[in-house]
Design a protein around this nucleic acid. Structure first.
Length: 504
RNA sequence: GGGCCGUUAGCUCAACUGGUAGAGCAACUGACUCUUAAUCAGUAGGUUCGGGGUUCGAGCCCCUGACGGCCCA
């Protein structure tokens, strides 16, 4: 959709083009950049919000603010408008006798959606609203298209995602969600920085995608003549930094996984991953509940939150239950305690649940499948599930007194996995064996990468201090803390199919 | 990948059993110097997502495609 093409099609836009033409004929610049803004709407409202009408009359200060016109209430020779800036909205009163005929005539040509700069004093209207009385106005940017409706806003989800700028302009709640997202990320970073973590950046483009099991995106570097993968996780690089002696590092950045899209999945998503030497998975569970608790408290002002109508209590501390205990507790059948002991019973239970059990699948793997099917949806309040089987935890340290499970936990809330952490496997021989077992199992198909990051193994051979590491799904956490039902509500530009119309 | 639902004016939504596509907001013209979903009078605005079919007649039924949403794998 090009501008010209639209003009031919729409009566509405044809009228607006005529208006723009007459503005140009009046000598009005449509896109000047020399207006100086000195105040935000919020500054004005906060500083003078409680001043009486009489006090304001004595105030001689002139204010200068700007924003998008969101409403016009025209009375002929006077009008009220609302300007929206990054902090909120403020009302402006325009009178012909004060502005003069020329500027008032300019105002008459403006539309909802245009950007306007205003200078003037403050007064309080009869209905009590603090208002700027315009002594001077300046068009700052002309909108060639009408904005979505003022009352219902923009509800069409496709348009909201494809033209997020419109969503942000007219739906205050959307803006609030993204401001809150930024705040959450800020608090998480501050939390780690206070604990002497170093914020780092590691490669997005990796020759061997490691640190997780997922289908990667593939790309190609021309000069180096090599295939590269967008990372599915930063884990193996962050551990290299730990080996280098940095001891406490974190990276809050994007991962890419070439898999399905859903309300919980976007191909690129944000992960907070961090590593702390000389501590264990138990220390990280404590750190996690403290961090998320602090985020809730600082961003939302309370440990008690509501997600999609369900009350959650994020006050530390949260239960820690082993996977096996969880299966018994939430397994839903009388013999749940037996499936954790009996391989054949576990197989039978999985098949009864309609789960696929492949040839040679281990007891632990089957238990995890049953857990995901039966237990996960029931984990509403925050809870740590611990001691995952070693077969599904290729980078985690074995538990000292139980070699078939690992010092690993996952954090669940509202039936969703939010975080995954473990004491890191730092024995290079064990790590090498696990990589090779993993690779053998998955075969060598193009999609399922079975390459082994030998460079990482070499690094491990130089010695990695005992360390625990964790990843937190930032988008999912933000969803819960902003009461958002879909991951697309917390990502500005979620992935969409290409539209035939190239302009969107 | 499968199932279900959706796509109508710039936006938000109607349209009975297949029978002339409507409203509110926005826009345009006019009135109005304290409104806040301003008000009052009038006007204009449509490829009903695209393509094909059935029918005297299709927004509605059938086939097909695009895009989106939810659920499932």
């Amino acid at each position: 959709m090009t501008f010209g093409a639209v003009m031919e099609e729409s009566e509405l836009l044809r009228q607006r083009r005529e208006k723009i033409k007459s503005l140009k004929e009046m000598g009005v610049e449509l896109f000047p950049n020399d207006f100086k803004v000195e105040h935000t709407s919020l500054e004005i409202l906060q500083r003078y919000g409680d001043w009486s009408a009489e006090d304001l009359q004595g105030l001689e200060e002139i204010f200068s603010c700007a924003g998008r016109i969101m409403a016009i209430r025209d009375f002929g020779r006077a009008a009220f408008i609302h300007l929206q800036d990054r902090k909120g909205r403020i009302q402006v009163y325009l009178r012909e006798d004060l502005l003069g005929e020329e500027l008032f005539g300019l105002f008459k040509k403006l539309d909802v959606g245009d950007f306007l700069g205003v200078r003037g004093g403050l007064f309080r209207t009869k209905t009590g609203e603090l208002t700027v009385e315009a002594a001077l106005i300046k068009l700052l940017a002309k909108s060639f298209h009408p904005l979505p409706e003022k009352w219902h806003g923009l509800t069409d989800v496709e348009t909201r995602y494809r033209q997020r700028y419109l969503d942000l302009a007219v739906n205050p709640k959307v803006r609030e969600t993204f401001y809150r997202r930024s705040e959450i990320i800020k608090v998480m970073k501050e939390f780690l920085l206070q604990r002497d973590f170093l914020e780092v950046e590691t490669p997005m483009m990796q020759p061997i995608p490691g640190g997780a099991v997922a289908r990667p995106f593939k790309t190609y570097h021309k000069t180096l003549d090599m295939e590269l993968y967008l990372r599915i996780a930063p884990e193996l690089y962050l551990k290299r930094l730990v080996i280098g002696g940095l001891e406490r590092v974190f990276e809050l950045n994007r991962n890419f996984r070439n898999e399905g899209l859903s309300t919980q999945h976007n191909p690129e998503f944000t992960m907070l991953e961090f590593y702390q030497s000389y501590c264990t998975y138990e220390d990280l569970m404590t750190l996690t509940e403290e961090m998320i608790g602090e985020v809730a408290l600082r961003v939302l002002g309370s440990y008690e939150i509501t997600y999609q109508g369900v009350g959650l209590n994020l006050a530390p501390h949260w239960p820690r239950v082993t996977l096996r205990e969880a299966l018994v507790q939430y397994g839903g059948v009388d013999n749940s305690h037996n499936i954790v002991e009996d391989y054949l019973l576990a197989q039978e239970r999985a098949r009864n649940l309609g789960l696929e059990v492949e040839e040679g699948e281990s007891h632990g793997e089957i238990l995890v499948k049953i857990f995901e099917e039966v237990v996960e949806p029931k984990l509403i309040q925050p809870i740590f599930i611990t001691e995952y089987p070693v077969e599904v935890s290729p980078l985690a340290r074995r538990k000292n007194d139980a070699q078939e499970v690992t010092e690993r936990f996952e954090l669940f809330m509202v039936g969703r996995e939010i975080a995954n952490g473990f004491s890191e496997l730092n024995n290079p021989e064990d790590q090498s064996e696990r990589f090779r077992a993993q690779a053998a199992k998955r075969g060598g198909t193009d999609e399922e990468i079975s390459l082994i990051d030998e460079g990482f193994l070499t690094a491990l051979e130089y010695g990695m201090p005992p360390t625990a590491g964790e990843g937190i799904g930032v988008d999912r956490l933000v969803m819960i803390l902003t009461d958002s039902p879909s991951i697309r509500d917390v990502i500005f530009f979620p992935q969409m199919r290409k539209k035939p119309d190239v302009s969107l």
